[in-house]
Protein backbone atom coordinates (compact mmCIF):
# COMPACT_ATOMS: atom_id res chain seq x y z
CA UNK A 1 0.00 0.00 0.00
CA UNK A 2 1.52 3.29 -1.13
CA UNK A 3 -0.17 6.41 0.20
CA UNK A 4 -0.33 9.73 -1.62
CA UNK A 5 2.19 11.08 0.91
CA UNK A 6 4.73 8.24 0.80
CA UNK A 7 8.23 9.30 1.73
CA UNK A 8 9.87 8.59 -1.63
CA UNK A 9 7.48 11.13 -3.16
CA UNK A 10 8.75 13.79 -0.77
CA UNK A 11 12.31 12.88 -1.71
CA UNK A 12 11.48 13.41 -5.38
CA UNK A 13 10.03 16.80 -4.47
CA UNK A 14 13.22 17.93 -2.74
CA UNK A 15 15.30 16.63 -5.64
CA UNK A 16 13.31 18.76 -8.09
CA UNK A 17 13.13 21.85 -5.88
CA UNK A 18 14.32 24.15 -8.70
CA UNK A 19 11.02 23.55 -10.53
CA UNK A 20 9.16 25.04 -7.60
CA UNK A 21 11.70 27.84 -7.09
CA UNK A 22 11.10 28.92 -10.70
CA UNK A 23 7.37 28.95 -10.07
CA UNK A 24 7.77 30.92 -6.86
CA UNK A 25 9.83 33.51 -8.72
CA UNK A 26 7.16 33.95 -11.38
CA UNK A 27 4.40 34.14 -8.78
CA UNK A 28 6.23 36.83 -6.81
CA UNK A 29 7.03 38.87 -9.93
CA UNK A 30 3.47 38.72 -11.21
CA UNK A 31 2.15 39.56 -7.73
CA UNK A 32 4.41 42.60 -7.28
CA UNK A 33 3.75 44.05 -10.74
CA UNK A 34 0.02 43.42 -10.67
CA UNK A 35 -0.19 44.91 -7.17
CA UNK A 36 1.47 48.08 -8.49
CA UNK A 37 -1.00 48.18 -11.40
CA UNK A 38 -3.95 47.48 -9.08
CA UNK A 39 -2.92 50.30 -6.73
CA UNK A 40 -2.65 52.81 -9.57
CA UNK A 41 -5.98 51.77 -11.08
CA UNK A 42 -7.59 51.55 -7.66
CA UNK A 43 -6.57 55.03 -6.53
CA UNK A 44 -7.44 56.69 -9.84
CA UNK A 45 -10.85 55.05 -10.16
CA UNK A 46 -11.51 55.30 -6.41
CA UNK A 47 -10.97 59.06 -6.49
CA UNK A 48 -13.00 59.39 -9.70
CA UNK A 49 -15.80 57.53 -7.96
CA UNK A 50 -16.04 60.24 -5.32
CA UNK A 51 -15.70 63.20 -7.67
CA UNK A 52 -18.60 65.53 -8.47
CA UNK A 53 -18.02 65.02 -12.15
CA UNK A 54 -20.88 62.78 -13.32
CA UNK A 55 -19.10 61.19 -16.29
CA UNK A 56 -16.06 60.24 -14.20
CA UNK A 57 -18.34 58.69 -11.61
CA UNK A 58 -20.10 56.69 -14.30
CA UNK A 59 -16.85 55.43 -15.86
CA UNK A 60 -15.58 54.35 -12.45
CA UNK A 61 -18.89 52.63 -11.70
CA UNK A 62 -18.84 50.69 -15.00
CA UNK A 63 -15.25 49.55 -14.46
CA UNK A 64 -15.90 48.40 -10.91
CA UNK A 65 -19.19 46.63 -11.59
CA UNK A 66 -18.03 44.99 -14.80
CA UNK A 67 -14.86 43.58 -13.28
CA UNK A 68 -16.30 42.65 -9.90
CA UNK A 69 -19.23 40.79 -11.39
CA UNK A 70 -17.40 38.58 -13.87
CA UNK A 71 -15.10 35.74 -12.84
CA UNK A 72 -11.36 36.35 -12.98
CA UNK A 73 -10.93 33.11 -14.93
CA UNK A 74 -13.11 34.40 -17.76
CA UNK A 75 -11.25 37.71 -17.86
CA UNK A 76 -7.95 35.87 -18.09
CA UNK A 77 -9.31 33.47 -20.73
CA UNK A 78 -10.42 36.48 -22.73
CA UNK A 79 -6.94 38.01 -22.58
CA UNK A 80 -5.27 34.69 -23.36
CA UNK A 81 -7.52 32.90 -25.83
CA UNK A 82 -9.78 35.72 -27.02
CA UNK A 83 -7.53 38.65 -27.89
CA UNK A 84 -5.24 36.69 -30.28
CA UNK A 85 -8.27 36.25 -32.57
CA UNK A 86 -8.31 40.07 -32.80
CA UNK A 87 -4.60 40.03 -33.61
CA UNK A 88 -3.57 41.16 -30.15
CA UNK A 89 -1.03 38.73 -28.72
CA UNK A 90 -0.09 39.58 -25.13
CA UNK A 91 2.64 37.38 -23.62
CA UNK A 92 1.35 35.11 -20.90
CA UNK A 93 3.33 36.88 -18.16
CA UNK A 94 1.68 40.17 -19.11
CA UNK A 95 -1.70 38.43 -19.22
CA UNK A 96 -1.12 37.57 -15.57
CA UNK A 97 -0.09 41.08 -14.55
CA UNK A 98 -2.89 42.72 -16.53
CA UNK A 99 -5.60 40.22 -15.60
CA UNK A 100 -4.92 40.10 -11.88
CA UNK A 101 -4.00 43.81 -11.70
CA UNK A 102 -7.19 45.02 -13.39
CA UNK A 103 -9.28 42.60 -11.34
CA UNK A 104 -7.95 43.77 -8.00
CA UNK A 105 -7.84 47.37 -9.18
CA UNK A 106 -11.63 47.26 -9.15
CA UNK A 107 -11.72 46.03 -5.57
CA UNK A 108 -9.12 48.54 -4.45
CA UNK A 109 -11.12 51.31 -6.14
CA UNK A 110 -14.04 50.45 -3.88
CA UNK A 111 -11.79 50.38 -0.83
CA UNK A 112 -10.35 53.80 -1.72
CA UNK A 113 -13.77 55.26 -2.49
CA UNK A 114 -15.13 54.09 0.88
CA UNK A 115 -12.06 55.54 2.61
CA UNK A 116 -12.48 58.93 0.97
CA UNK A 117 -16.22 58.96 1.67
CA UNK A 118 -15.47 58.42 5.33
CA UNK A 119 -13.60 61.75 5.52
CA UNK A 120 -16.02 64.55 6.35
CA UNK A 121 -16.84 66.59 3.26
CA UNK A 122 -16.08 69.75 5.23
CA UNK A 123 -12.41 68.88 4.81
CA UNK A 124 -12.68 69.08 1.03
CA UNK A 125 -14.71 72.27 1.18
CA UNK A 126 -12.18 73.86 3.49
CA UNK A 127 -9.29 72.84 1.26
CA UNK A 128 -11.01 74.14 -1.88
CA UNK A 129 -11.81 77.45 -0.14
CA UNK A 130 -8.12 77.79 0.71
CA UNK A 131 -7.32 77.74 -3.00
CA UNK A 132 -6.41 74.04 -3.46
CA UNK A 133 -7.38 72.47 -6.74
CA UNK A 134 -9.49 69.25 -6.57
CA UNK A 135 -6.45 66.99 -7.16
CA UNK A 136 -4.29 69.15 -4.84
CA UNK A 137 -6.84 68.83 -2.06
CA UNK A 138 -7.01 65.08 -2.65
CA UNK A 139 -3.25 64.72 -2.64
CA UNK A 140 -2.50 66.87 0.42
CA UNK A 141 -5.62 66.79 2.58
CA UNK A 142 -8.01 63.91 1.88
CA UNK A 143 -5.82 60.97 0.84
CA UNK A 144 -3.37 61.23 3.78
CA UNK A 145 -6.31 60.99 6.19
CA UNK A 146 -8.08 58.29 4.20
CA UNK A 147 -4.96 56.19 3.82
CA UNK A 148 -4.98 55.30 7.51
CA UNK A 149 -8.48 53.89 7.16
CA UNK A 150 -7.92 52.06 3.89
CA UNK A 151 -4.60 50.43 4.75
CA UNK A 152 -5.98 47.35 6.52
CA UNK A 153 -8.48 46.42 3.76
CA UNK A 154 -5.77 47.24 1.22
CA UNK A 155 -3.30 44.72 2.61
CA UNK A 156 -6.16 42.26 2.71
CA UNK A 157 -6.54 42.83 -1.05
CA UNK A 158 -2.82 42.22 -1.50
CA UNK A 159 -3.18 38.83 0.16
CA UNK A 160 -6.08 37.93 -2.13
CA UNK A 161 -4.10 39.15 -5.10
CA UNK A 162 -1.20 36.82 -4.34
CA UNK A 163 -3.54 33.86 -4.12
CA UNK A 164 -5.35 34.84 -7.30
CA UNK A 165 -2.13 34.78 -9.34
CA UNK A 166 -2.69 31.02 -9.33
CA UNK A 167 -5.21 31.60 -12.13
CA UNK A 168 -2.13 31.61 -14.39
CA UNK A 169 -1.96 27.84 -13.98
CA UNK A 170 -4.95 27.59 -16.32
CA UNK A 171 -3.17 29.33 -19.17
CA UNK A 172 0.26 27.70 -18.83
CA UNK A 173 1.63 30.77 -17.07
CA UNK A 174 4.58 29.10 -15.35
CA UNK A 175 3.60 30.23 -11.84
CA UNK A 176 3.82 28.19 -8.65
CA UNK A 177 0.46 26.49 -9.18
CA UNK A 178 1.31 25.61 -12.78
CA UNK A 179 4.64 24.09 -11.79
CA UNK A 180 2.97 21.97 -9.14
CA UNK A 181 0.31 20.81 -11.63
CA UNK A 182 2.91 20.05 -14.23
CA UNK A 183 5.37 18.29 -11.92
CA UNK A 184 2.78 16.23 -10.09
CA UNK A 185 0.90 15.20 -13.21
CA UNK A 186 4.01 13.69 -14.74
CA UNK A 187 4.85 11.43 -11.81
CA UNK A 188 1.50 11.56 -9.97
CA UNK A 189 3.16 12.60 -6.70
CA UNK A 190 0.40 15.12 -6.15
CA UNK A 191 0.37 14.82 -2.36
CA UNK A 192 3.70 16.46 -1.53
CA UNK A 193 3.43 18.89 -4.45
CA UNK A 194 0.24 20.60 -3.30
CA UNK A 195 1.18 20.57 0.38
CA UNK A 196 4.52 22.18 -0.47
CA UNK A 197 3.09 24.95 -2.63
CA UNK A 198 0.30 25.49 -0.10
CA UNK A 199 2.98 26.20 2.47
CA UNK A 200 4.80 28.51 0.06
CA UNK A 201 1.61 30.52 -0.54
CA UNK A 202 1.13 30.62 3.23
CA UNK A 203 4.67 31.91 3.58
CA UNK A 204 3.91 34.73 1.14
CA UNK A 205 0.53 35.66 2.56
CA UNK A 206 0.89 35.19 6.31
CA UNK A 207 3.25 38.15 6.88
CA UNK A 208 0.86 40.41 4.99
CA UNK A 209 -2.12 39.12 6.92
CA UNK A 210 -0.27 39.70 10.17
CA UNK A 211 0.55 43.22 9.02
CA UNK A 212 -3.15 43.80 8.37
CA UNK A 213 -4.02 42.84 11.90
CA UNK A 214 -1.30 45.15 13.28
CA UNK A 215 -2.55 48.05 11.21
CA UNK A 216 -6.11 47.44 12.31
CA UNK A 217 -4.97 47.67 15.91
CA UNK A 218 -3.14 50.93 15.22
CA UNK A 219 -5.97 52.71 13.42
CA UNK A 220 -8.56 51.44 15.85
CA UNK A 221 -10.64 49.87 13.09
CA UNK A 222 -11.03 46.61 14.95
CA UNK A 223 -12.05 48.12 18.29
Amino acid sequence: MVGPFAWFKWEALFRDWTVFAEGLKTTIMVAVLSLALALILGIVFGVLGTSQWKLAKLVSRIYVEFIQNTPLVIQVYFLYHGLPHMDVMIPVFAVGVLGVGVYHGAYIAEVVRAGIDSIHKGQMEAALSQGFSFWGAMRHVILPQASRIVLPPLTNQAVNLIKNTSVLAMVAGGDLMYRADSWSSDNLYYGPAYVAIGLLYLLLCLPLATLTRRLEGKTGVSS
Partner: peptide, 16 residues
Protein backbone atom coordinates in the same frame (compact mmCIF):
# COMPACT_ATOMS: atom_id res chain seq x y z
CA UNK B 1 0.77 22.36 -20.50
CA UNK B 2 -3.00 22.55 -20.26
CA UNK B 3 -5.36 20.52 -18.16
CA UNK B 4 -7.86 19.52 -20.86
CA UNK B 5 -7.66 18.73 -24.59
CA UNK B 6 -10.22 21.38 -25.64
CA UNK B 7 -8.03 24.02 -23.99
CA UNK B 8 -5.03 22.95 -26.08
CA UNK B 9 -7.18 23.09 -29.20
CA UNK B 10 -8.29 26.62 -28.21
CA UNK B 11 -4.64 27.58 -27.74
CA UNK B 12 -3.80 26.19 -31.19
CA UNK B 13 -6.70 28.10 -32.75
CA UNK B 14 -5.68 31.37 -31.10
CA UNK B 15 -2.04 30.87 -32.03
CA UNK B 16 -0.81 30.60 -28.45
Amino acid sequence: EFSTYPEIKAALDSGR
